[in-house]
Each structure stands twice: as C-alpha cells, then as structure tokens.
Amino acid sequence: MIGSHYVYWLTFALMMIGLYVVISHGNLIKKLIGLSLFQVAVFLFYISLGKVDGGTAPIITEGTQTYSHPLPHVLILTAIVVGVATLAVGLALVVRLFESYGSLEEDEILRRDTTDRDGVAS
C-alpha cells in the first residue's frame, strides 16, 4: 500500500505540514508560507495523478510511444497562477497590515486593535 502509493503519502504529509503552519503560527508571513506549502502539496498530488508508468513528458518526439497524461499538468498550471495570485494578495495585505499596525504578529495586532477599535487604515 505505502510502497505503491508513496507519492500520495508524501504529498499528504506535506499538506498537513502546511496546514499545521497555517494554524499554529501567529506570524502572518509564516501563515502565508504554510498556505503556499499546502497549495503546492495539492499541486504535486495532481501532477502525480497524471504520471503514466514509463511515460515521458507529453511532448511529441520521435521514438516515444508512452506519454504522461497532460491534462493534470495544464490544470495545475492554472492552479499555480491562482496560488501565485493568492500569495500576492496575501503579501500585499501583510504589507498594509504592517503599515497600519506596525506588527506582523496576529496577537499583537489584535491587542492594538482592542485599544484603538476604530483605527483607520493607512
């Protein structure tokens, strides 16, 4: 079981590491790192789905008969774009959060928020 599906187990482990980082860390940047790990793990999972035993990259060349399935690759290309966009929006928010609060720690931000509830965004 583990032998034949080890890729799945690896991606699964990577996913859990990412999710754990998201949940356990208060630092906003680290949360985004965890999120990226989580996403990348899923990308790897998708790509491994498309692997055909003995196949090569799905580019038609002389002398090859077996190709890996190209569709998952294409899908993940889209998903990577989505992931990059998410990361970009997230980092942009972190920058503005840091400008407004002067901190990247969630606890600290919340603490400053309670002392000044109506603080205006910079």
């Binding site: 949360k31 989580f38 998708y46 997230g90 205006v120």
Partner: peptide
Amino acid sequence: RRRRALLAAFRYLVVGSVGAVFVLIGIG
C-alpha cells in the same frame, strides 16, 4: 475604512484559500 478591515481580509484569505484548496483536492 478601518484598519481592522485588513486583518479581516487577511483572515478570510487564509481560511478561504484553505477552503478553495479543499475543493481542488476533492475535484482532483
């Protein structure tokens, strides 16, 4: 208007992205 909106957006981003990735896994 308020700076808390940034935090709200960030939290939604993290949770929402995890949710979206869950959907992605399911579809996969």
